[in-house]
Design a binder for these strands. Structure first.
Lengths: 141, 141
DNA sequence: TAATCTATTGCAACATAGTTGCAAAACCTA
DNA sequence: TAGGTTTTGCAACTATGTTGCAATAGATTA
């Protein structure tokens, strides 16, 4: 784990610092998307609020994580797959928000469908967010 | 215009007040989605910030407007079509954000496609936000 | 592994967005 | 137009996010 995280940071040409390691660890431990507040909880008061904001921004810039738009306008972050690179995200998958447990997942295997646009509209990016009940909540009820 | 707005308010069993009229007017004048800040600009300092927040919330509750999730997590509001009613929105259309003029439109004629969900995931709502260049910006370049 | 240079962090202060309680004002009904 | 009810404005507060700058930690090279 520790080594995997260090490798990822080096591969992204980022210096390996305690806060970056701890924050990345949060993402590897949870397999769902995290809000800034979730991360603050996870790392405790070991690091400054500002550091977390800046670290998340750095990770987004480097293509390590991507943001997810949600209907209630909370900012969520999730790990990118390997195909993402700095400044060029490939997260064309659907995001799923569970109304029950409130977790957000990347449905890597569900690709956003292409749609027909009206005359003279040109699409460059499509975000698709589905809400409902996730597999874990369905299984446990 | 004035009468159309008053009718809409009465139909929604809301009392007809100056702020509600002025805020609805903003939506009818602009045919794109509006952020809280846009509305504040439009109505000037005639009404309190808090009143605008509360009025928008009331309109959402009554099915007069709906919110639009955006990739940069700004809250946008747009008029609902007649098929919307209190507590029950039918805005299953695609939303479009222009990267050039930065306006957001409801593409009423483009319906969100249904997608196949993975085992045990059940979808109840789908939001689809497309960004790119709108017809107006394409035509004028 | 010590010296140095650069990148990162923490602090403080600030900016913006949104919420709540309560008294005053506006609206609706009869 | 008098009454009760709803809406508004004000003030204060919370949450969220940003910026500049000095101190610190990480990386590099000898």
């Amino acid at each position: 784990m520790e080594q995997k995280i260090i490798d990822l940071l080096k591969r992204s040409s980022l210096s390996v610092t305690d806060s970056r390691k701890k924050i990345l660890e949060s993402f590897f431990q949870e397999n769902s998307a995290l809000a800034h507040a979730d991360i603050e909880l996870h790392v405790g008061d070991e690091f400054d609020r500002v550091t977390i904001y800046r670290t998340l921004q750095t990770f987004v810039d480097k293509g390590i994580i991507h943001t997810i738009p949600t209907p209630d306008n909370a900012v969520l972050y999730a790990l990118c797959k390997d195909s993402c690179s700095a400044g060029h995200h490939h997260d064309n998958h659907v995001h799923f928000i569970c109304d029950n447990c409130n977790k957000t997942y990347c449905l890597e295997q569900v690709v956003v469908p292409s749609i027909a646009m009206p005359q003279n509209f040109v699409a460059s990016q499509i975000d698709m967010v589905v809400s409902g009940i996730c597999n874990f909540c369905n299984a446990s009820s």
